[in-house]
């Protein structure tokens, strides 16, 4: 049976056959509230190592909140969230889970890269300084080694010639590519993308998406909230459609995008399609 699967399994998923137990990310009944507003209402999710999971959904459906919970930028109110087998931001306590100390949390976060809708580059540092900041000051890598690694990463995102530029001098697409390099500099095992191209013009969005595509092909585990349906279709191993704080539908991107089962998914994809040939959707 395993032999039959060989032919169809993308190379990066081969590892799963031998070590089936531990997914890279696992969410069990995750709840998150802002005051009285419940944003995540018992969410279940599993992402295997090497897999690219895309999250689609309307504005306010909780995509950003989910991503921010995965690296514990937000506390969860209930449930369990595992990254690489470790409870993220908490330790097990039987009936409850207890938040861990900041030192341990920082170590966990260092293994998870995140790219935001706005690049959030550090404006007082040059491109190179942005990329080596965390390796040098968080991981205490020797500066020379960090610079060498940073140059390799910046070359990969096509910005080797802008090492000494300040972020304010870069275009939006260039800024996002630096942000990706900055996250990769920590050698993360998981990358989170929160609508990395939503604030960009369609022409520059392509250059960012192609960097992400390359990353996916190298086997990086990625969770990508996005409205770029072409990316979802071509790069995603799985897609989930979120609405109202739960996952309404999930599956293979081709199936879900072409033959959505749920009414809400159908409605969302129809609106999306009509927007795609006209103006782009809003900032969310």
């Amino acid at each position: 049976m395993a032999a039959a699967a060989w032919g169809f399994m993308p190379v990066r998923n081969v590892a799963r056959l031998f070590v089936p137990a531990m997914p890279m990310v696992r969410a069990e009944d995750v709840h998150k509230r802002y005051g009285r507003l419940e944003v995540l209402k018992g969410l279940h999710l599993e992402v295997a190592a090497g897999e690219v999971l895309c999250i689609i959904g309307t504005c306010g459906s909780g995509k950003s909140t989910l991503l921010r919970c995965i690296n514990h930028l937000e506390r969860i109110d209930g449930g369990r969230l595992y990254v690489d087998g470790e409870l993220m931001g908490y330790r097990e306590g039987g009936d409850c889970i207890y938040e861990i100390r900041q030192r341990d949390l920082c170590r966990q976060r260092a293994g998870v890269g995140m790219v935001f809708e706005r690049s959030n580059l550090f404006p007082h540092l040059t491109v190179l300084e942005n990329v080596i900041e965390a390796p040098v000051h968080v991981k205490h890598e020797p500066k020379a080694a960090a610079i060498e690694h940073a140059r390799a990463l910046l070359k990969r995102v096509g910005l080797l010639d802008r090492l000494d530029a300040y972020p304010g001098r870069l275009s939006g697409g260039q800024q996002q590519r630096v942000a990706i390099a900055r996250a990769l500099a920590m050698r993360p095992k998981l990358m989170l993308f929160d609508e990395p191209t939503s604030a960009l013009d369609p022409e520059v969005a392509g250059e960012v998406l192609s960097v992400m595509r390359g990353l996916a092909h190298e086997g990086m585990t990625m969770i990508v909230a996005t409205h770029e349906m072409a990316f979802v279709r071509d790069v995603g191993d799985e897609v989930v459609f979120m609405d109202g704080g739960v996952i309404v539908e999930s599956g293979n991107p081709r199936d879900v995008l072409l033959h959505p089962q749920h009414e809400r998914t159908k409605a969302f994809l129809q609106v999306g399609a009509s927007l795609a040939d006209g103006s782009r959707s809003g900032p969310c």
Binding site: R68, N71, L73, Q102, R103, C106, R107, R109, A110, G111, V112, G113, M114, F116, R118, N120, L121, F122, E133, A134, H137, V138, K139, A179, R182, A183, M186
Partner: peptide, 16 residues
Amino acid sequence: RGQLDASLALGMSSAL
């Protein structure tokens, strides 16, 4: 606020 988010996401402590 995004500056703090980005810093924490890179594994920095809040003091750093």
